[in-house]
Structures are given as structure tokens and as C-alpha cells.
């Protein structure tokens, strides 16, 4: 499974939450997460939904502040991303 890089960690409204920023191909998105979700600055996003060149469509564990579940991110933002789609 892949891990997505997150940055700008800030305290959330509740002590169990953290607010992070993720870098998508369309710009940064804010995301509220459970603190336990973040390990070494990465979150688990499962397997890719689609791959186009070096861009990966991934599903986040929660909606972003603008209401998105799935976002396109560059491969550089991912750990353990697959190299290519099997034909």
C-alpha cells in the first residue's frame, strides 16, 4: 500500500486531530486527520485508483476542506507507489 506525504502539521480542533496540507497536481489541499493516521509525515492511502504518467489518483482517508475524497498527486509525493499498470 502507498503512503502520501503530508506537511504543515497543525493542531486540530480536538486533541485527537491534526490539520495537514497535501500537495496535489492542482495545488495544496487542507485535510483534517486523526493524529494516529500520520506516521513519519506520511498517511496510508491504499492502492492507486488510476495512474496517468507520473500522476496517481489516490483516495484520502477523509474529505479535504474543499470536499474532495480523490486527488491526483505526483509520484514524488508517494512512498511505495507501483511503477506501472499491469496490462
Amino acid at each position: 500500500m502507498m503512503k502520501l506525504k503530508v506537511s504543515d502539521l497543525q493542531e486540530g480542533l480536538h486533541h485527537s486531530e491534526v490539520v495537514v496540507s497535501i500537495h496535489t497536481t492542482e495545488g495544496d489541499e487542507g485535510l483534517v486527520l486523526g493524529k494516529r493516521s500520520v506516521e513519519r509525515g506520511y498517511i496510508n492511502v491504499g492502492y492507486p485508483i488510476r495512474i496517468k504518467g507520473s500522476s496517481f489518483l489516490v483516495e484520502l482517508p477523509r474529505e479535504t476542506s474543499s470536499g474532495k475524497w480523490r486527488v491526483w498527486v505526483d509520484k514524488s509525493q508517494l512512498e511505495d507507489a507501483p511503477e506501472k499498470v499491469v496490462a
Binding site: 500500500m1 492511502v45 491504499g46 492502492y47 492507486p48 485508483i49 489516490v58 483516495e59 509520484k75 508517494l78 512512498e79 511505495d80 507507489a81 507501483p82 511503477e83 506501472k84 499498470v85 499491469v86
Partner: peptide, 16 residues
């Protein structure tokens, strides 16, 4: 299983 939990088409392939 939802796409994000399904390893089918990407099975066993890792980034360099």
C-alpha cells in the same frame, strides 16, 4: 473491495 483496497492490477510492483 473498494479500489483503494484492491491490489489487483498493481500487484507486486513497487517504485524504484
Amino acid at each position: 473491495t473498494p479500489d483503494k483496497g484492491y491490489n489487483g492490477q498493481f500487484s507486486g510492483q513497487k517504485a524504484e
